[in-house]
Computed example of a mutant assay.
Amino acid sequence: MTDEEWAAIRPLLPVPAWLHGRGGQPEGYCHRQLLDAIRYLVAGGISWRAMPVDFPDWGRVYAFFRRWREHGLITEFHDRLRGRVREREGREAEPTAGIIDTQSVKAAASVPSVSRGWDGGKKVGGRKRHIVTDCLGLLLVVAVTAANVGHRDAAVGLLQRLRRLHRDICLVWADGGYTGGPVDWCRQKLALTLQVVRRTDDMEGFVGRCHVVECVTV
């Protein structure tokens, strides 16, 4: 990352326990180096052991990543960044509305067959991403299922997580795949308005606000 990016990110990083006297030891490497290594791995789709020698040893990078994941620090860091971006756009850090959608993607041969399925509507065999974003297209919650799991089946758990993690959310836009049961269920169980946005006959894909989700899922 550039010096400008690091200057923006550094204050948002979770503070190590050892700085608060709660045990642990300082990292052997700068967090900037470790984050750069993880970003390189994700962008290139490489294995941990294939980490170039320009970065810290792969074992140290993986241990750093695993520790952050187990303690929820990756999610915390992501949420802080999202809040900062929203504030930069003149919005409150916590959103009050969201958009839900899914996308089926072809699974690689290495993906276990028990976690894959066939989406008959999209003619795709693999997995399905179920996500909720804010109105800027920034991720709020995500779930990955087999591709044969329907919109409405996955929506229950996804929207429950959304309500638990983002208490200010009161409205979620959706496409026609969520028509019916989920609308009433959200109102009765979550005190949440699930508003279905209809497609028009003369336009392809999403219309209006729901388009921002497609920009994330492609």
Rank of each mutant, 00 (worst) to 15 (best):
R91V: 00
A43M: 03
M1Y: 02
V213W: 01
W173P: 01
G137I: 07
G28N: 11
L73Y: 06
V212K: 11
P16A: 09
L41I: 14
T200Y: 02
V149L: 04
L12F: 05
L190Y: 05
G157C: 06
E92L: 15
G45C: 07
V196R: 00
A174Q: 02
H31R: 13
M203T: 15
V216W: 10
G28A: 13
R88Y: 02
V142L: 13
R198Y: 06
G24N: 10
I99C: 08
A63G: 14
Q195A: 13
L190K: 14
R60Q: 12
R10S: 13
A191M: 11
D184C: 00
E5Q: 13
S47V: 10
R49P: 11
N148W: 08
P11V: 06
P56I: 12
G21I: 08
G208S: 03
E70C: 03
L35M: 14
G176K: 07
A155T: 06
P16D: 11
I38V: 15
Q195S: 12
R86A: 12
R88M: 01
T145C: 07
D202L: 09
E70K: 13
E94W: 00
A174Y: 05
P52Y: 00
V207K: 03
V213H: 04
V207N: 08
D202T: 15
S115D: 12
E70R: 14
P52Q: 00
R161C: 09
T2S: 14
E89Y: 09
S115H: 10
D201L: 12
D201K: 15
Q188C: 02
P14N: 11
T133R: 03
D36V: 00
P56K: 03
E92N: 12
Y62N: 14
D119Y: 04
R10N: 12
H211Y: 01
T145L: 06
R129V: 01
R163T: 14
R199M: 03
L136Q: 12
L192K: 13
V144Y: 04
R22H: 11
W185Y: 04
K106N: 04
T96L: 08
A146H: 00
A63T: 13
R60L: 02
I74S: 09
F64N: 05
M1G: 14
Q160Y: 05
E94N: 05
G177S: 09
K128F: 02
L34R: 07
P11E: 07
T133S: 15
R91C: 08
L41D: 00
D3V: 12
A108G: 15
A93I: 10
